[in-house]
């Protein structure tokens, strides 16, 4: 997999990923987004946080913690699995479902803030909006993402962005969070390299239970 990388010509070799955000950066970004939510949602009175599986859930939990510190209140927190609403279900074998948990107060009339790690094609968010539509009728829906890497395929934008990261389609963005990957980091690298290192990771049965989604165009 990666063993023979050195033998390929330098200019064609997939570039190893480089880190664009480290743990401190991620913590700072989450704090900033929390403040923005409080500011724009006027104290975040009716906010419900919904993390989109998998890493959006971890980010939503962190955001929830920061908001509690800032507002002194427990903001309702839930999770959303959008598998059943995906538009690419038939491209792959059936996927196992993740847990969807809507907070006890529901979402009717609330300001739902969807939380995800990377905003790319927009298709995940489209599916999440469809899912919300079946669950209830929020007053408004906003979107918070750690990274916006561009290349939208649908008219969707984020309300809170941790970092705008202009990328090429040849590149892959990997978000690693300590909750599932042992470390906090955002990396950008060549898609081919990422794919290769992913399979290497899998083979070694390395730290992460599930390898990071490389956020390829869907």
């Amino acid at each position: 997999m990666t063993a023979h990388r050195d033998s390929t010509p330098q200019d064609q070799a997939p570039r190893p990923p480089h880190q664009v955000l480290d743990g401190t950066d991620i913590a700072r970004v989450i704090t900033r987004i929390a403040h923005e939510i409080v500011e724009r949602a006027k104290g975040a009175e009716d906010v419900v946080l919904l993390g989109i599986h998998t890493r959006g859930v971890h980010l939503a939990r962190r955001l929830h913690g920061r908001l509690a510190q800032i507002t002194g209140r427990e903001i309702p927190l839930g999770t959303l699995d959008i598998t059943m609403y995906r538009d690419d279900l038939r491209l792959k074998p059936a996927r196992a479902l993740e847990h969807t948990e809507i907070p006890p107060g529901g979402i009717d009339g609330k300001l739902v803030v969807l939380v995800d790690d990377v905003l790319f094609s927009g298709r995940t968010i489209r599916a999440a909006l469809d899912a919300l539509n079946d669950i209830g009728r929020p007053r408004a829906v906003q979107l918070a993402v750690l990274v916006d890497r561009g290349h939208r395929e649908l008219p969707i934008r984020a309300d809170y962005v941790g970092k705008n990261l202009p990328t090429s389609l040849r590149e892959a963005v990997q978000v690693r969070l300590s909750d599932s990957d042992g470390v906090d980091a955002v990396l950008v690298g060549d898609r081919d390299f990422t794919a290769a290192s992913r399979s290497a990771l899998t083979e070694q049965g390395a730290q992460a239970a599930k390898p990071t989604e490389p956020h390829l165009p869907e």
């Binding site: 699995d81 059943m84 609403y85 279900l89 196992a96 479902l97 969807t100 539509n133 079946d134």
Partner: peptide, 20 residues
């Protein structure tokens, strides 16, 4: 069984339907 457990939530929702 785990998938069924997730899908069981549906019966408590307003719209008991998925587009899958």
């Amino acid at each position: 069984l785990d998938t069924a457990e997730e899908l069981a939530q549906l019966s408590g929702r307003a719209v008991k339907k998925l587009p899958t």
